[in-house]
Amino acid sequence: MSKERLAGKSAKCTAQKQSMCVKNTAPQNVVVILPDYNDEVSIGSVVLLTRYYADSVIVVDDDSPNRTAEIASKAGAEVIVHEVNKRKGATLKTVFAAIYDLGADIIVTMDSIVTMDSNSHHNPAEIPKLFGPIIIGKADMANGSRYLNGLDKYTLSYCRVGQNILDGVTKLNSGLQITDSQSGFRAFSALTKDIFRFKAQKMSIESEMLTDAGKPGLRIVGVEIGVRYDVDCSTVNPIKHGFGVFL
């Protein structure tokens, strides 16, 4: 790929990866995508934890000014490096375009945001919860949601108000009854990869993907997930972020 270079190879994970609810199904090649920028302190631990639940982990380093790519590679991830910062939409497009070459049956996207104590924004242990409905043939896509059982009391109030608005707009555009439309923790059957446009370059990519998925009538389920609330909101100004997604 132009302006991109391969910085490492993934190592197969030999640990028990399947949850009890899917352990009797046919083996599936699960590939986890971690879009990343400037996380050299913690990306290694996130990759190591994620590899326990996946056959391979791909880190897309979006032109980090440090050793993020090098450390991710040493931790066992396959690393794709953008030579210029392209934002999340382009990051996902890069990997989805290469999925068939990797032999993936299931794709999991997961935020690699980390906290000061090196814990991931999303919990890698919940990866089997997301790909479970796909493996057993009940869904083509799973959307991780914090809000399936009502409002989450730990989310900052202005973040949740904005989330409700964006959920409503996304439902109108996609026709899907979905909660947590801005979730970056999702699983997809590899057969869905050509459905997504990847036009949005910033965080609005999450809503765009749901809109695209709603058009062909894919089977989409919500899966309850947890999250680290000390990194719950984007570092971008929430009003600016919400308005951008709304447009």
Rank of each mutant, 00 (worst) to 15 (best):
S10A: 09
E83K: 12
K12N: 12
T109L: 03
S45N: 11
G8D: 04
V60L: 15
F246T: 09
T25F: 15
D111Y: 02
F198D: 06
Y52Q: 05
P35G: 10
S2F: 14
F131G: 03
R197V: 10
S145I: 03
D62A: 12
V81L: 10
N149S: 12
H122F: 00
V22W: 08
P35E: 07
G76A: 11
I99C: 04
M141V: 04
D232S: 13
S189W: 08
P128Y: 00
L156M: 11
T155Y: 05
D55K: 01
N119P: 01
R146H: 00
V114W: 05
V32T: 04
L49E: 04
I135N: 03
V60T: 10
V169Y: 13
P124W: 01
A187W: 02
F188D: 03
D232Q: 15
L102H: 05
G168C: 12
A139M: 00
L130I: 00
K3I: 09
P65S: 04
K12W: 11
G214F: 03
Q163R: 13
V236H: 14
L176K: 05
L218M: 08
T115W: 07
V221F: 11
D61L: 04
D111P: 00
K93D: 15
D140V: 01
V95W: 02
K12D: 13
V245Q: 11
I113M: 06
Q182G: 09
A97K: 15
T50M: 03
R51C: 00
V108S: 03
M20D: 12
I165A: 03
M209V: 14
A190H: 09
L151K: 15
N24D: 15
L218H: 12
Y53A: 01
A72C: 13
G217D: 10
S45A: 14
S64R: 11
S45E: 10
P238M: 02
R228H: 08
F196Q: 07
T50V: 06
S204G: 13
D63M: 13
I205L: 07
I71T: 12
T68V: 10
L210Q: 04
K199L: 10
K17V: 01
L176G: 06
P27K: 10
K9F: 07
D117K: 04
S118C: 07
P27A: 08
V245W: 08
L148G: 07
R219P: 04
A69F: 06
D167C: 10
N143S: 06
V236W: 14
G89K: 10
T14G: 11
I113H: 02
L48S: 15
F188E: 01
N66S: 10
